[in-house]
Amino acid sequence: MGTTNFLDWKIREAKRKKRKLFCVFLTCGFPDLAATERLILSAEQAGVDILELGFPFSDPLADGPTIQYASEQVLKRSLSIADAFALVRRVRRKGSRIPIVFFGYLNPVYAYGEKEFARDAREAGLDGLIVPDMPPEEELAFQKECRKNKLRLVYLVAPTTTDERAKGLVQRSQGFVYYVSLRGVTGVRSGIPKDLEERLKKLKRMTDKPVLVGFGVSAPGQARVIAEMSDGVIVGSAVIEHLKQGVGPAERFIEKMAKAVHGS
């Protein structure tokens, strides 16, 4: 493992086919590791382009009640980064070629050892990394390790980000750019922020990288509209909400959302 970066490959393909990207966030281990594994394995079939594997943290600052809840449930039984890596290794062995991006707060990564993390993540078969509480100004040595290991570091751009700063962020972001569609934390919202289209246009002028929109995306109609304005959408809390009902309902929801995003 570690030669092909599926994220690079997927993004090149999407560009060539002018296809929107549909990204699903899962809290690793919620409701259990078997469910996460099954969802990763069925994701490609369901039309998911990128998978964000959320690693639970005791203090998830950027997350709303849904993901907080899922994280708390997982941590009651404890979960290590090594467990998450083992899961990725398992799905790769079973032939999954879906791009998997690790989404986690910095402290668990820091405690694992940044250098070791970059090496082991790639080795396990992860393609990218999102650390919502690590701006590009901090942990420069770690960023270098990620580059060295070809672990793509994706940065977030927020509605409050100044144009000046956004230019730097999109330039440094690898793979794609994660646009946070609203001021606030993750969670299910209805409607579409008023300034979204304007902001996306501006961002698109700054970069060729795909710009994906996340935070608050929860319904097919809303996802379709956002996908038209952008290069794709990221859905997290809404998936977790369905997952509370069971893996089946979550899978059906994912399929529905994928169809909406891809316009089929």
Binding site: M134, P135, P159, T160, T161, V180
Partner: peptide, 12 residues
Amino acid sequence: GGRYVPETLMKA
């Protein structure tokens, strides 16, 4: 020290 916050707060 430093500033380890979500991007939304960087401006503030």
